[in-house]
Design a protein around this nucleic acid. Structure first.
Lengths: 148, 148
DNA sequence: ATAATTAGTTAGCAAAGCTAACAATATCAC
DNA sequence: GTGATATTGTTAGCTTTGCTAACTAATTAT
């Protein structure tokens, strides 16, 4: 028997629901992915490159909350597909600067578009207040995620 | 160049943010998982069994938005660990009824507890209004997910 | 100059998803 | 009833994505 304060109990219930909703959302979106050439993690990494500009592998891995070897491989694959480039840094020759190519940017757009098509339509059908709730919740989560 | 109505544009931006927040949240939570014996998908499946009662493999797979072979393996692993049982149905001998064991229920509790510990603490530290926002957002997402 | 740290890669493993192919049972058409 | 078709679940084998451990190369600190 667990004993908790009312507030902690409420927080726990909210955490569970948010967690569960996130799991199901991603599983659902994953499906519209395969149809096209850009998997979830690759799309996400490319997105960071497009919107955050060229970065080192380490930073990219950190942004994606993934270990260096994992990102190293993802980037290698993006490079093979001509979606990103690696270039050595002159001042510190250990680091590799990774950038999205024009092709990468284009494909990213198309990919995220399709991936989020259904969700976007659903969000559009919500009331103004509900949309605002989602937007605020996303912001809160981003903040919590950053906290670690 | 994409052209969109202001409202669709807003919906798209919200969809992106929600998506991104969900990705990062799950990546973060996944880490506190490994420490213990119950991975994300297994924990989730077990949860369905505990809260939804015994089910056929097909229903369980549908609830988890996963294909039958995937669920078949997850259940087999849960069974090996003594967390779930499979029993044939007498009236339709094709189907297998899957149920959580007492051990499974206990472990599920402990698992989700630990998995959500950090998030719960963070949610607890939020303002009342922020907590309410998260709760509402989770509800909205669950509804959208159910729509397909 | 040498030691320690940092950035990235390679190799090899595990988890979780998929499809294709199959066995066993149920249901339907006739 | 019997043969064709559906459904349920499993097995085999592949892919993707994550990890750690071990390594190289380059930089920084002592």
């Amino acid at each position: 028997m667990k004993k908790r304060s009312g507030q902690a109990d409420e927080a726990h219930a909210i955490a569970e629901r948010v967690h569960s909703a996130a799991i199901r959302l991603l599983r659902r979106l994953r499906k519209s992915d395969a149809a096209q050439g850009l998997s979830g993690p690759k799309s996400s990494a490319l997105s960071v490159l497009v919107f955050g500009g060229p970065q080192t592998l380490k930073d990219l891995a950190a942004a994606e909350q993934v270990r260096a070897p994992t990102m190293s491989r993802l980037v290698a694959e993006l490079e093979v597909d001509g979606l990103a480039t690696k270039a050595g840094d002159r001042s510190d020759r250990r680091v590799v600067r990774i950038a999205a190519t024009a092709k990468g940017k284009t494909l990213l757009e198309a990919g995220r578009e399709r991936r989020l098509e259904v969700l976007t339509a659903q969000v559009e059908a919500l009331s103004r207040a509900e949309r605002e709730t989602l937007r605020s919740a996303a912001e809160i989560l981003v903040r919590l995620n950053a906290q670690g």
